[in-house]
Amino acid sequence: ETGKELVLALYDYQEKSPREVTMKKGDILTLLNSTNKDWWKVEVNDRQGFVPAAYVKKL
Rank of each mutant, 00 (worst) to 15 (best):
T2G: 14
T2L: 13
T2D: 13
G3F: 14
G3K: 14
G3E: 13
K4N: 09
K4Y: 13
E5G: 10
E5A: 12
E5V: 15
E5S: 12
L6K: 11
L6D: 04
L6R: 10
L6Y: 15
V7Y: 09
V7L: 12
L8I: 15
L8N: 02
L8V: 15
L8F: 09
A9C: 12
A9K: 01
L10V: 07
L10C: 08
L10T: 04
Y11Q: 13
Y11K: 12
Y11S: 08
Y11P: 01
Y11C: 14
D12G: 06
D12K: 03
D12C: 06
D12H: 06
D12V: 02
Y13H: 04
Y13T: 01
Y13M: 01
Q14K: 12
Q14P: 06
Q14C: 11
E15L: 07
E15Q: 13
K16G: 08
S17W: 06
S17H: 11
S17Q: 08
P18H: 10
P18R: 09
P18V: 10
R19C: 15
R19Y: 13
R19Q: 12
E20L: 05
E20G: 13
E20M: 06
E20V: 05
E20S: 07
E20Q: 11
V21M: 13
T22N: 06
T22G: 08
T22E: 04
T22C: 06
T22D: 04
T22V: 03
M23D: 00
M23E: 00
M23I: 15
K24I: 08
K24G: 05
K24A: 08
K24C: 11
K24H: 10
K24R: 13
K25N: 04
K25Y: 05
K25H: 06
K25R: 11
K25E: 07
K25C: 08
G26E: 02
G26C: 10
G26K: 02
G26H: 05
D27I: 04
D27P: 00
D27L: 05
D27M: 15
D27T: 08
I28K: 05
I28W: 05
I28Q: 05
I28E: 03
L29I: 07
L29C: 10
L29R: 01
L29E: 01
L29F: 07
L29S: 02
L29A: 07
T30P: 15
L31I: 05
L31T: 01
L31Y: 02
L31E: 00
L32R: 04
L32F: 04
L32T: 04
L32I: 14
L32A: 03
L32V: 12
N33Y: 07
N33E: 14
N33Q: 10
N33L: 09
T35V: 09
T35G: 11
T35D: 15
T35Y: 09
T35Q: 14
T35A: 12
T35H: 11
N36V: 05
N36R: 09
N36A: 08
N36Q: 09
N36P: 05
K37N: 11
K37W: 08
K37G: 09
D38F: 15
W39D: 01
W39E: 03
W39K: 02
W40K: 01
W40M: 03
K41I: 14
K41G: 05
K41Q: 12
K41N: 06
V42N: 01
V42L: 04
V42D: 00
V42F: 00
V42C: 05
V42A: 01
E43Y: 07
V44D: 11
V44P: 00
V44R: 15
V44H: 15
V44W: 08
V44G: 14
V44K: 15
N45Y: 13
N45A: 13
N45R: 14
N45K: 14
N45W: 10
N45V: 11
N45F: 11
D46K: 11
D46G: 15
D46Y: 09
D46N: 14
R47F: 05
R47P: 00
R47L: 07
R47S: 06
R47M: 07
R47I: 07
Q48G: 06
Q48S: 12
G49W: 03
G49E: 01
G49C: 03
F50A: 02
F50L: 09
F50I: 07
V51A: 03
V51S: 01
V51H: 00
V51W: 00
V51Y: 01
P52V: 02
P52N: 02
P52Y: 03
A53C: 07
A53F: 02
A53E: 03
A53G: 04
A54F: 08
A54D: 09
A54I: 10
A54W: 09
A54Q: 10
A54Y: 09
A54R: 15
A54N: 13
A54T: 11
Y55A: 10
Y55L: 13
Y55V: 06
Y55W: 07
Y55S: 10
Y55C: 10
V56Q: 00
V56W: 01
V56F: 05
K57H: 09
K57S: 10
K57M: 15
K57L: 14
K57W: 10
K57E: 11
K58M: 11
K58H: 08
L59P: 03
L59V: 10
L59E: 04
L59M: 10
